[in-house]
Design a binder for these strands. Structure first.
Lengths: 207, 207
DNA sequence: ACAAAACCTACCCAATTGGGTAGGTTTTTG
DNA sequence: CAAAAACCTACCCAATTGGGTAGGTTTTGT
């Protein structure tokens, strides 16, 4: 039994080329080709495919939105984005939407097939550049802002929802001292409210 | 000119096997093998390698900590973790520390060489399972908590550090209404302060 | 058309927070 | 050692926030 693949791509020659490559394999077969997400979503249950090759730039519903909708119906669908976009925002949007892989259109036939194999076996096919982007997104650069140990403690407790009183109790110091530290924290972070301080500390990886 | 590789691995037979594979290639050569991070860090400038194969479980400084220190001296070092650990915490710790790739020890010789090639060309070599984990980490599951459109607007503005007054101005409604919405938000999120609300909303991907 | 939900406003009071000054001790560092 | 930095406390006052009640309009769904 071959794995069913649906292609959603408005560049017809390209989708036909993909289909030809896929149908040539022993393990995969293309059950439908759509040039828009709407039709793909309409026929989801009929096609009953586990694998999707999804373009991003599509007329009507775009690929990211389409991915969300397909995943809502079939959470286990493997949706591989195949697009020309390589800028970080689109990539992360697609991954957040539930894409299980991300390839760029300049891929070779065997790469396409490899990606399908990787995907069906629970992996996440990615082009080299995308993999790098994804990994890089974890590498938080340290902030240049320096908080003292005590200031960090206060900020952490504050971020957990403690009131000044509660922080004071937990650190065994007076509420006035908490205020004193926060005042200094606000200056260092250049903010003027507790919420901003917590947000900024999070963004700067200070806590 | 071959690319210099340093191996940090306390399983000597394994590190020697790696070295043998690497030295057999035309593009890479092992310039040093260490069974601990301390020595590797000490000889950083002498070895002057661009590539590191780093074990995680090491006596003394562990691989994650070692990675941080090496990246501090050589931010451009390509450090590939090669370990048996596959649990998410360790993987993400390693990536955050600056690892540019993550492989598991059951890898084949050609996979090792491929990883080096990928890494040197700016990519991020990962085993299939790790790639999947990394991609999955982006897929935020939607919260079951439902906020109205207005409540989200208020919460977003609050999270940006606006005071009630400021939020009221921006939404063209009265401060009292802001308080009203926040009261409801606090109930829905089961919190009782603005900071907690913002934190929880972030955690639940509500804003 | 009706009910439910969402949205809006106002008022009150208690509690918390922000910002300031003024001073003290302890720890770190040149 | 002396200076600097971090840490601590207290007090004051203005402003903001939390929590409550009581009512209104608009939008949504059945």
């Amino acid at each position: 039994m071959k794995h069913k693949v649906v292609i959603v791509e408005d560049n017809i020659p390209l989708s036909e080329a993909f289909a030809e490559v896929i149908d040539f394999t022993n393990d995969f077969e293309v059950v439908a080709i759509y040039d828009n997400c709407e039709d793909a979503i309409k026929n989801l249950r009929k096609d009953c495919a586990k694998l999707f090759l999804m373009d991003i730039e599509l007329p009507g519903i775009n690929g990211v939105e389409g991915t969300k909708q397909i995943k809502k119906v079939f959470p286990k669908a493997n949706i591989i984005m195949v697009t020309v976009y390589e800028n970080s925002e689109v990539v992360f949007d697609a991954l957040c939407a539930g894409a299980s892989g991300y390839l760029t259109k300049n891929l070779k036939p065997e790469e396409l097939v490899d990606a399908l194999k990787v995907s069906i076996s629970g992996g996440a096919p990615m082009s080299i550049k995308i993999a790098k982007m994804v990994v890089s997104s974890f590498q938080k650069k340290p902030s240049k802002i320096e908080l003292s140990k005590r200031e960090k403690e206060v900020l952490v407790l504050l971020s957990e929802g403690n009131s000044y009183d509660s922080i004071a109790e937990k650190l065994f110091i007076s509420k006035n001292t908490i205020k004193f530290h926060l005042k200094n924290i606000y200056i260092k972070l250049q903010v003027n409210s507790n919420i901003e301080a917590v947000q900024k500390a999070n963004k700067e990886n200070l806590i």
